[in-house]
């Protein structure tokens, strides 16, 4: 088994932490895993992305050109990864930040209004967890419980009080993605 995930969006949308949550969950599930961030000037505004590779055996390339799974948190990322996604793959798109429909028919594009859901929960920074929750519908190797345990263990101390809200965000994302007809 090997699965690759790219998470992309604006700097500040929680792209890197979203990827780390999946990485910790995969590690705790006994998998091999790599987390590879974009570390260039894009970290200071502009777009950011990270690649997570989850596998049963030693991982070769930590980068992937055509991932089977991706999260696009803004329009430029939607444009880029809709084109690059492997046929049959699943793309989670943050509907709150895009103004167009999907073009490709050979991939599953799931629109989830991450910003709106996060704001309903009272904290717009939760949008990355909404997106991660949505992605879990296409990543059976990692369960919601796995991710909740990760958040409990690795959420920075200053954010610990946000644990219940983070878990709620995950759940809302998962449910929203499940409601979208395949």
């Amino acid at each position: 088994m090997q699965k690759e995930i790219i998470i992309a969006g604006f700097g500040g949308q929680g792209v890197l932490f979203g990827g780390q949550v999946l990485t910790y969950a995969a590690m705790d599930a006994g998998k091999e895993v790599t987390w590879f961030p974009s570390y260039g000037p894009e970290m200071r505004g502009g777009t950011a992305n990270c690649t997570v590779v989850i596998a049963d055996e030693e991982i070769g390339s930590p980068l992937v050109k055509n991932p089977p799974l991706a999260i696009a948190l803004n329009l430029p990322s939607f444009d880029k990864y809709e084109e690059l996604l492997a046929p049959g793959g699943t793309l989670i798109v943050n509907q709150s930040m895009v103004d167009r429909q999907a073009k490709r028919k050979d991939i599953h594009v799931i629109f989830v209004a991450c910003n709106d859901i996060a704001e309903e929960l009272g904290n717009k920074k939760l949008l990355n967890m909404v997106a991660v929750g949505a992605l879990l519908t296409a990543l059976p190797e990692i369960t919601m419980k796995d991710v909740e345990r990760v958040l409990e263990a690795h959420l920075p101390a200053r954010h610990k009080h946000l644990l219940p809200l983070n878990c709620e965000a995950l759940k809302r994302g998962f449910e929203a993605a499940n409601k979208v007809p395949a």
Partner: peptide, 10 residues
């Protein structure tokens, strides 16, 4: 190379 410096692995 910079990628091993920047990446995370268990």
């Amino acid at each position: 190379d910079g990628s091993i410096g920047q990446m995370m692995e268990p």
